[in-house]
Computed example of a mutant assay.
Amino acid sequence: AGVPAAWAAAGAGLRHAAEAATAAQRLPDRPWHDVRRLDVDVLLWRLRAQGDLAAFVERVIGPLLAHDASARPALLPTLESYLARGGRKAETARELHLNRQTLYDRLGRIARLLGTDLEDPEAVLSLGLALRARRYAG
């Protein structure tokens, strides 16, 4: 949680570390998590009890979740990989073992399903947050 500047700050650091440890339980298994890199996950974990988090996930990626529940190929892994690689299509295609045209087709279907532009930074931020929030909204 970092080195506190004073004893008074130690309590806040420990509380943050405890919240981060609880939030990390919903993350993919790893040998360890750096608490300094979990701020967004801690924030989402705190918001989970307010009910708005589930509504946010449904609003942003609900159509994609519904599609994947009833159709193939599942498009959610494509979106997750695309966002994890910062929108780099060539890397995403390699990671998913797809040719680029197949990836472009899937990204087009995702954009149409969600009614969004995958090149828009605000949309990408919302999608990334919704994908992460899904771990806590459920």
Rank of each mutant, 00 (worst) to 15 (best):
H97L: 11
T92L: 03
R112G: 02
E91P: 07
E80M: 11
E95A: 15
L83P: 04
L125R: 15
L113K: 10
F56Q: 09
G86D: 13
E80Q: 13
E91D: 13
A84N: 09
T116M: 00
L79C: 00
S126E: 15
L65V: 14
L75T: 03
A71R: 15
Y104F: 13
R100P: 02
G62Q: 04
A49H: 12
R132M: 09
A123G: 03
L53F: 09
L76Y: 00
D68Y: 06
L125V: 15
R72D: 13
F56T: 07
G62W: 07
D105S: 11
A55W: 03
Y82V: 01
A69P: 02
R85I: 04
D105I: 04
D52A: 12
P73V: 05
L107V: 08
A54W: 00
L75S: 07
L118R: 02
K89Q: 12
D52R: 10
V60F: 04
G115M: 06
G51K: 04
S126D: 15
V57Q: 10
A74D: 14
S126N: 15
A133D: 09
H97F: 08
L114D: 00
E95H: 14
A84D: 13
E95F: 11
S126G: 09
R88F: 09
A54E: 10
P77V: 00
A71W: 14
G115P: 10
E122W: 03
S70V: 13
L65I: 15
T92H: 03
R132P: 03
L103T: 09
L65F: 06
L83N: 02
T78F: 00
T92M: 05
K89A: 05
G128R: 12
L127I: 01
R72W: 10
L83C: 01
A133P: 13
D68M: 08
F56G: 07
G115K: 11
L103G: 04
A133R: 11
L76E: 12
A66N: 06
F56L: 13
F56I: 10
T102E: 14
A111M: 04
E80S: 08
I61V: 14
A130W: 06
E80H: 02
A55F: 00
L103K: 05
A133K: 09
L65T: 07
R109K: 12
H67K: 08
D68Q: 12
Q50I: 02
A123N: 06
T116L: 02
R109M: 08
E119W: 03
G87R: 04
